[in-house]
Computed example of a mutant assay.
Amino acid sequence: MLGWLLGIAVAAALLVAAWPQTFGLEQAPIVAQVVAVRMGVVGIAAVLAVLFLLLSAARRIRRFAGAVVVLLVVFMVASSGIHLSRGIDDSAVEADDGDLVVLTWNTLGDAPGAEAIAGLVRDTGADVVMLPETTIETGTEVAVLLGAEGIPFWALTTDFSNADYGALNTTLLVSAALGSYTAQPSADVGQTNTLPTVVATPDDGEGPTFVATHPVAPVPQQMRNWRADLDFVAGLCTHDASVIVGGDFNSTLDHWTSLGVGTGDIGSCVDAAGATGSGAVGSWPTWAPAWLGAQIDHVVATPDWRPVDAQVLTGYDDLGTDHRPVVVVLRPR
């Protein structure tokens, strides 16, 4: 009887770890952290499977240990399949005239420096750049460097008190070729709770709203704020507006199951990486290979934009930040 009860408990735990959406637990404490790093959990399951396979040599627990091995193997296949179904394509697509190139990079408090950020913008041909944890001083310096090369950008920022701490800054760069943009007051458009979000609208009313966002990480003391931050971002993505959001969402597609509206992943917005077959490429942390990490840095857009390419760039892992840049090509429908 004890063996059966333990077996049922193991099966239930593995089901929750593989697909917590079954029980609406994808944003629950512990579960949210587990599902964020699917391949890491699969690796742990593989080690446990070997351990229980060895334990099955003991006659008294052979049946129980064998059953656990089977459950772990089923879990590994299922969770790996879910992860890989989101795509590992890292090929690049050239942007056409009229396409919008969007770049996001959490710089860990200006760690790469203005020249490296400007070089990335130049190399990717980005039109819009979302930079969580980047101060306005660095953002302005990036804009100056690019302007000197004939690529002018507007630099907009939102910071919270004690802005000397890098995480309390979020900066948005918008190409001057798209027109002038203004950051809207939080009192008018709302705000994430712990780390700042920039919401910028075109001064002439022509063009999409750009959002550089940074929901807080789902650490135990911030779970309520994390959920509220994701709700806030989802609320910006409505069918009656043209909105492009990029940044460090501190969440994966799994966490958004209850937030999508219609065919959207979060609100009406569609995740570009998931839509173009690269949703399984990890953007964090840089010390882990991309196939093992979590994709928590995203660019999402309302249905008037069609994602045609998304890449997690692995060539910038040694520049001081623990996040990889994500570059996306969006095409107006």
Rank of each mutant, 00 (worst) to 15 (best):
L236H: 06
G267Q: 09
D248T: 10
T158F: 01
V245T: 11
D318V: 09
G246E: 00
T182L: 14
L48N: 11
A272T: 05
I266K: 03
D254C: 00
M39C: 02
A187R: 04
A58Y: 13
V300I: 15
D265M: 09
L55N: 11
A200K: 02
Q222T: 10
W105Q: 05
G207L: 08
P220I: 12
S258Y: 03
V219R: 06
G66S: 09
D229V: 01
L253N: 08
S283K: 00
M130W: 02
G320E: 10
A12P: 06
R62K: 08
D159K: 12
A294I: 00
L55V: 13
R86L: 10
M223F: 10
P196V: 11
P325D: 14
F52A: 11
G235I: 01
N169I: 13
A28E: 13
D164L: 13
V35N: 14
L156Q: 06
T22G: 02
P185G: 12
E141W: 10
D204S: 11
W291S: 07
F75E: 02
L71V: 05
T22H: 14
D89N: 11
L5S: 10
H214V: 03
G147N: 04
T257I: 05
P215H: 09
S242N: 07
H83E: 08
A111F: 00
Q191R: 13
R60M: 14
